[in-house]
Amino acid sequence: MGRALGVLIWLLTIGSVWLFVNGRWWLPPYISEHGPAYDRQFMITIIVVGLSFAAAQIGLGWAVWRYGARGNRGERAVYSHGNNRLEIIWTAITALIFITLGLMGQRVWAQLHLNEAPAGSTKVHVVAQQFQWNFHYPGADKNFGRTDPNLVKDAELNFVGLDEQDANAKDDQVVTTLAVPVGRPVELTLESKDVTHDLFVPELRYKQDVVPGMAIKMHFTLTKEGRFELACAELCGQLHYKMKSYLIALPANVYDELVAMPQAQFQGRITQLIKEYPLGIRQGAATTAALR
């Protein structure tokens, strides 16, 4: 019985490790500047985790395999209450590894969360509502028009409550797809109309809760063109799983043209772009440097 259990533990360990290393399922390719750093930290952590996991399971399997009783009631186990030196050594080693890992893991976070977005970032307001994402662009004048919850009229497609009287609002566009330029820092301001949502684009390596009552800022820089699925990752009600949109990463010049358009044209162009860009990173796109 003991041997069978030992072997089973080993088999399960091998199976688990295989699932992680077979390469069929892994993180989607990254598209942002912090992506490589994220992936590196992820790999390091997974390797440490994997090694510790395998070592512990192999040790457990070995103990179970080796130290089974042989049915002879007379034989006795080793009488020992422990070993303080061993205890101190392994505590120190694990503490060192874990804390180092923990400190290393703060880098990307600090870069994204403790730094402000660079001056001159492209700004977009995100207004989430139950089961729909609205993206509010400032238009050609780069100033956001005034919004007011009292002006929200979903039937008239005024999802964000834009005040038409405001001069800054004249050229603002509101669509349900997020288009941002590649190679320029982007700053999103996240707001929610009703409950807590969460903006999640796997390729972006970024999740951020959209908390009602707060205007939370997030910033990143994209390095690859393409169209990517944008999901809600915080339970927001009945149709949470359908709260989907797209992130379209456009070359800077295309983006500049796009934001100069008035609302109606803007919307048409976005629809066209969704068709133009197949899902995923756009193959054969010009390098980031050329797009700047």
Binding site: P149, E191, G213, M214, A215, I216
Partner: peptide, 8 residues
């Protein structure tokens, strides 16, 4: 912080 981030 929430005091500063309030949108309405």
């Amino acid at each position: 912080r929430i005091f500063n981030l309030r949108n309405y």
